[in-house]
């Protein structure tokens, strides 16, 4: 029983302290703490709206897509087609970067190569279509086009570099918990 409490504290200790700080800030009308609390609410709402949906999709993906298929299309030896597929997959997604890590972990578990896992992350951070649409609206198509054009070789190169560095190093993507 005691060890369970310790595990809980280790997991949520920081969050509890943060919550206490926000609560005390409200009671004492400490403007800074209240502002931080309001910021937190905005981000928390974004997360709690998007992530459960994403994890439903991830769970369904997990049970429906067989490992052989990912292995064949995105695994080591999938070549240029593997890169193309993984980039397309990343481009179709939306949401903040922290939503990409669990997908990357799932892809890896299903046999996606190290190189393609990192290319996935790179494409996710730079050329998601929903984000591009938004970016074009504010900064113009020339800005987005140039950014996409220059980013592409960069994140592909990063994928190759990391895969090369991690070869023979027993690298694995862990799933927390």
């Amino acid at each position: 029983m005691k060890s369970r409490a310790v595990v809980f504290l280790k997991k949520f200790g920081f969050v509890l302290v943060f919550a206490a700080f926000i609560a005390i800030s409200w009671i004492t009308r400490f403007a800074g703490g209240m502002e931080i609390g309001r910021n937190f609410r905005v981000f928390f709402l974004e997360m709690i709206l998007i992530l459960p949906l994403m994890f439903i999709l991830i769970g369904l993906f997990d049970v429906w897509v067989p490992r052989e298929r990912i292995m064949r299309h995105l695994g080591p030896g999938s070549g240029a087609w593997g890169i193309l597929w993984v980039v397309l997959l990343a481009m179709l997604q939306a949401g903040p970067l922290y939503g990409a890590f669990p997908v990357a972990a799932l892809l890896w578990r299903k046999g996606c190569s190290v190189r393609n896992v990192f290319i996935y992350l790179g494409a996710f951070t730079t050329i998601k279509i929903p984000m591009l649409a938004f970016e074009v609206g504010f900064l113009g198509w020339k800005f987005s086009l140039l950014r996409g054009l220059f980013s592409f070789p960069v994140f592909i190169a990063i994928g190759f570099l990391l895969a090369f560095y991690l070869k023979n190093r027993q690298f694995e993507v862990r799933e927390p918990g």
């Binding site: 997991k11 949520f12 920081f14 969050v15 943060f18 928390f44 997360m47 992530l51 459960p52 994890f55 439903i56 999709l57 991830i58 769970g59 369904l60 993906f61 997990d62 049970v63 429906w64 922290y98 890590f101 669990p102 799933e175 927390p176 918990g177």
Partner: peptide, 18 residues
């Protein structure tokens, strides 16, 4: 699948809140 997704979500929630 739903169970798996829920478990993954709950496992990452603390780090996410940080």
């Amino acid at each position: 699948g739903l169970k798996k997704g829920a478990r993954m979500f709950l496992n990452i929630l603390p780090a996410m809140l940080v």
